[in-house]
Amino acid sequence: MTDRPSPPILDPRRAVQRVLLITLALNLTVVGLKATVGWLTGSLSLLADALHSVTDSANNVLGLATNRLADPHPDRDHPYGHQKFEAIGALGIAAFLGIACFEILKTAVERIVGGGNSVTLGATALWIMLVVLGINVFVAFYERRVGLALNSKILVADARHTMGDIWTTIVVLAGLIGVWQGLTWLDVALAFPVALLVFKSGWTVLRENLPWLVDEMAIAPEAIHAQVMQVPGVVNCHNIASRGLLGRQVFIDMHLVVKPTDIQAAHAITEAVEERLEEAYGPARITIHVEPREYTEEEITY
């Protein structure tokens, strides 16, 4: 059996922290502008949108905390690293979105049942909302670009949330223009699609991070098998399993049958297999169990 040491892992946490601090400042600015305009105009949809934006700031704070814990380097107590802390942070984002969705719906129903305050709008409020929209667009594309470059789940998840906030702001802005033109019922009516957009963002984040936390298959065993069988000297491989995050770090286990019968030659083939898998799927931590040549197994995975 060989357990090849994992190659040096790039630690992008410092860059992620810098992005989160920048977006936190911008998101707090957005919250302040939305809340101020919503309070001055009495707009329910805008106040709901401000609540949605509060979760953006909370997500940044949560991301800063979890990012400090998500050290990719293993230690004695965490031999597989600490990267799942980042996925836990992304799940926290989903929880915040669920809370925001509930509050938006609750407030909208209360306004319908109990009646609401009149909404008073001016051109200044609409111009401020256009500025807010521009900030949201910048934050979403900036976080997504850096998140993809660093392969940071917390940044990509937060960028998706902010992208949802852009559509929310567009819907609210359209409603405010309608209210400005005399369609006062639009304010409460548009609070419901805002809630749906919030829920959709939370569900997407939840769906994408649960597989990582429950060790779902990272690479199809058939793909690994195809790579391994191209290495000279390999007779068969089976009991293939993988987990982790492709492109960040994956863990691959397998049983291998090779042609040579002496340990040194068999070890050389396992090294070649590890190099091939590292090139195809790295960074990867690969564990190979070598079995006798006479051993046969029809299934390549569990």
Rank of each mutant, 00 (worst) to 15 (best):
R14I: 06
I166A: 14
H161M: 04
G116P: 01
A159I: 01
A220S: 09
L26C: 05
P232L: 05
V231H: 14
F96M: 09
T66C: 09
E86Y: 14
P8W: 10
A108W: 06
N239F: 06
V132R: 14
E294L: 00
V258R: 00
G233K: 10
A218I: 03
G233F: 12
L277K: 00
L133P: 14
D262H: 01
K153I: 01
F96N: 05
V171P: 07
V31K: 04
I128T: 05
M229W: 07
V231S: 11
W180N: 13
T124W: 13
T23L: 00
V188F: 12
D158H: 10
R285S: 04
C237D: 15
G147A: 10
L245Y: 05
P5W: 13
D11F: 01
S118V: 05
A223L: 12
A272M: 03
A108N: 02
T261H: 13
A87H: 04
P7C: 02
A25N: 08
R145N: 06
L150A: 05
E298R: 13
D165A: 00
P5C: 06
W39S: 15
R4P: 06
L33I: 11
S45V: 06
A272F: 04
Q17R: 07
A87D: 11
R4V: 03
N117H: 13
H238L: 01
R145K: 12
T184Y: 13
G116A: 08
V194N: 11
G116H: 09
D56N: 12
I88N: 07
L190P: 05
K34T: 06
A157I: 01
I300F: 13
M217A: 02
G164Q: 02
V16K: 10
L51E: 07
A226E: 14
G147I: 00
I269G: 12
L64I: 14
H225Q: 14
Q227S: 15
G114R: 07
P74C: 01
R13Y: 01
G175K: 02
L206W: 00
A266C: 10
I170R: 10
R248V: 14
G233Y: 09
R68M: 09
L190I: 12
A90L: 07
V198T: 15
R285D: 07
V205G: 03
I112H: 04
L21Q: 11
G89F: 02
V172N: 09
W185T: 05
P232A: 08
A90G: 09
S152R: 15
T29A: 03
S242D: 14
L105A: 03
V61F: 05
V113W: 13
A149G: 03
E274W: 12
L121R: 08
G202R: 02
A94H: 06
H161L: 00
R145F: 07
A266G: 15
A15V: 09
V61Y: 12
A149S: 02
L21F: 14
L69N: 12
I128A: 08
Q83D: 15
N151T: 04
A157S: 11
G42V: 01
L40K: 12
A108S: 04
V37T: 15
L28S: 03
V273Y: 02
E274H: 15
V156D: 10
V214Y: 00
Y80G: 14
Y302R: 15
A95S: 07
A159P: 04
V290D: 13
E208I: 00
K259P: 02
L20N: 00
